[in-house]
Design a protein around this nucleic acid. Structure first.
Lengths: 187, 187
DNA sequence: CAGTTATTATAGCAATCGGTCTATATAGTA
DNA sequence: TACTATATAGACCGATTGCTATAATAACTG
């Protein structure tokens, strides 16, 4: 095991566990076991402890999701069509690719009272993802005001859809909203 | 302190804490302290422990929210107008009435892997709330198929809006979507 | 009032928690 | 090879966790 891999391994494992189970439900020993990394390394690489690990994990997820979603959105020029396509892909992959859970709702909600970097990180990811939609809308010809408004609605909707789909273990809600996207974008 | 009050006091406190902070972030000692109830009573009244307490709390919240939302929706016959009114009230009350947080997203997401009654309770509350919207739509003249579809979308949207508003500490997202409700209902 | 039942008080348990610390192992460099 | 820097191993800590058990207290009933 070479040096850079250990840090990334811990971070990747933490990202997965924190995002799906939440911050308080996952202990550091669980991350260590699941990652196969040495416990001494955890504090070596993340000297500020659990919260540092979690906030870095959140930011990592934020960037990865952004890249993935942007890739998908950029395949089709039209904003509505590209969003519909995205939602259909999410529904299709729902049971097979957890990495395509484009949501940090759980972490965001449970860390609302946190006064540290973790809460900031979650908020920043919300902003980053809304920005991702805004840029797509702008590139598709939407005016600034509408792009701002609709991007916030899209980010809100995405979190809601994942919450519903994960809770009910049913991805069809993505398809429901895919049908509504054109109307939403013309509002 | 009379007997029936102790149980309810624990339950109310647990409902508030679990719903806002989550199941794993709140320990029983915190609930006991916040409620002023005796610790011995906790296991006396909730012999199956923390999970029983949480699932009863979830169900209690589910019913209370249902009553509150139904009351508000029933003030106006038209479905779109009543929903818009509801969202505007939520936005207004956001910083003053936490009891008007009509969401169990946090609990639902963190207990997805739970195999007990708590997960069931969260799912049931999602269904109950969707049903609440469905009945309103039916009473407003929507056909069964549309009422079903739109009620799921409304419940999804509500969870998304609360997630966004709580994370960003900004209730304006409710007002954003209030404008879109008529379009959503005619879709 | 005495006896029974309901409720509370509180000590104690094993396990887990996030974190600290030190010794050791490994990797890099001249 | 020797030295330095980096990374790992693992024991340990105090605090907290959810829960059990028992004794004490309070409430109820005839």
């Amino acid at each position: 095991m070479t040096k850079p891999d250990t840090r990334l391994k811990i971070l990747n494992t933490a990202a997965e566990l924190f995002r799906t189970k939440g911050y308080y439900a996952v202990g550091l020993n669980e991350i260590i076991k699941a990652s196969g990394a040495p416990k001494g390394s955890l504090y070596y690489y993340f000297p500020n402890g659990k919260e540092q690990l979690a906030s870095e994990a959140v930011r990592l997820v934020g960037q990865r999701v952004r890249h993935e979603v942007e890739d998908q959105l950029n395949k089709i020029d039209d904003a509505a069509a590209s969003l519909q396509h995205l939602l259909k892909n999410i529904a299709e992959d729902f049971n097979t690719r957890k990495s395509n859970y484009f949501s940090v709702a759980l972490l965001a909600l449970e860390t609302v009272d946190n006064n540290g970097d973790l809460k900031t990180a979650c908020r920043e990811v919300f902003d980053e993802w809304a920005e991702m939609y805004r840029l797509k809308l702008i590139r598709s010809g939407f005016c600034d005001e509408n792009a701002n408004r609709i991007s916030i609605m899209l980010q809100t909707l995405m979190e809601g859809m994942f919450t519903f789909a994960i809770t009910k273990n049913d991805p069809s809600v993505f398809l429901l909203f895919a049908e509504v996207i054109p109307k939403l974008l013309e509002s």
